[in-house]
């Protein structure tokens, strides 16, 4: 599904190399986790894959089902099936949550040559999905993420994911700012979307999210590279011993 090969990225503004040769393959149907200390480049990877301005790819490639992601505009990547659940979902005063989601769903359908969803069908679908995530009608009416608690913002991200039905989901520290109950709710939302044709890349600091969303593969990222990959037990090892040992091991 997602293939990243020897990806080198630097910040456009300052001549600072952030990713120094990331190689990673996430096959369809699998959940991969990336763990790593602060500043290792995890969030940068998610931004570069989704096309945020300010980064320059100096070497390497990233493809989604064989299509060159780096050559596409942000919205084209989304239409191709890439979804990023933001670490810090953006507040947009003046744009209703419902308007936003309907515009997004229909924009993607249009880009794929599908017919737009009627207002009624859209409402039916979003109500059902919102209910699973305990998102009430009031939250759907409010402006996008404005006045939402940390947990509400993250649930809203998962709702968008459920509505857009992407092929490749990147979750950037979706567990940050969540209490235990909210983490459970968000994880259930993610797990419900797991299937053979969809893949996940879960970026997290902590092992605890991975108790709920059990990964097939765990990658450890440090200093702009994947330094080790393994099964779920690798996450437990990190939780116990920290990253220091791993860094030395590979140094």
């Amino acid at each position: 599904m997602l293939e990243i090969n020897n990806l080198h990225v630097k910040l456009e503004e300052e001549d600072k190399q952030i990713l120094k040769g990331v190689t990673l393959t996430v096959p369809a149907g699998e959940v991969h986790a990336i763990m790593g200390p602060n500043g290792s480049g995890k969030s940068t990877l998610s931004y570069v894959l989704s096309g945020r301005d300010g980064y320059e790819v100096t070497e390497g490639s990233a493809t989604l089902e064989g299509e060159d992601l780096l050559d596409l505009e942000t919205e084209e990547r989304a239409a191709a099936g890439l979804f990023l659940a933001f670490q810090y979902p953006v507040e947009i005063p003046g744009v209703g949550n419902m308007t936003f989601m309907r515009t997004a769903v229909n924009a993607q359908r249009k880009a794929r040559g599908q017919e737009e969803l009627s207002a009624t069908d859209f409402l039916k679908e979003i109500r059902a999905k919102a209910k699973d995530l305990k998102i009430d009608a009031e939250m759907l009416k409010r402006p996008v993420n404005v006045g939402f608690s940390g947990g509400e913002k993250k649930r809203n991200e998962i709702l968008q994911m459920a509505m857009l039905e992407p092929k490749m989901c990147i979750l950037d520290e979706t567990d940050s700012g969540l209490d235990v109950d909210a983490m459970k709710l968000v994880s259930d939302g993610v797990n419900a979307l797991r299937d053979d044709n969809r893949a996940f890349l879960v970026i997290t600091h902590y092992q605890r999210l991975l108790d709920h969303i059990v990964p097939d593969v765990v990658h450890i990222m440090a200093n702009g590279r994947i330094i080790k990959s393994g099964g779920p037990e690798l996450a437990l090892e990190v939780e116990k011993n920290g990253y220091a040992d791993l860094k030395q091991e590979t140094a």
């Binding site: 945020r52 301005d53 919205e75 989304a78 953006v90 947009i92 003046g94 308007t99 936003f100 997004a104």
Partner: peptide
Amino acid sequence: DEDMMFYLRARGIDKETAMDLLVLAFVAE
């Protein structure tokens, strides 16, 4: 706002439509 713009585009909304949404949001008050 570039962050808002990126957020909208990351959901598949093209640049022009996103711009329109943000202009309407600006005058909403």
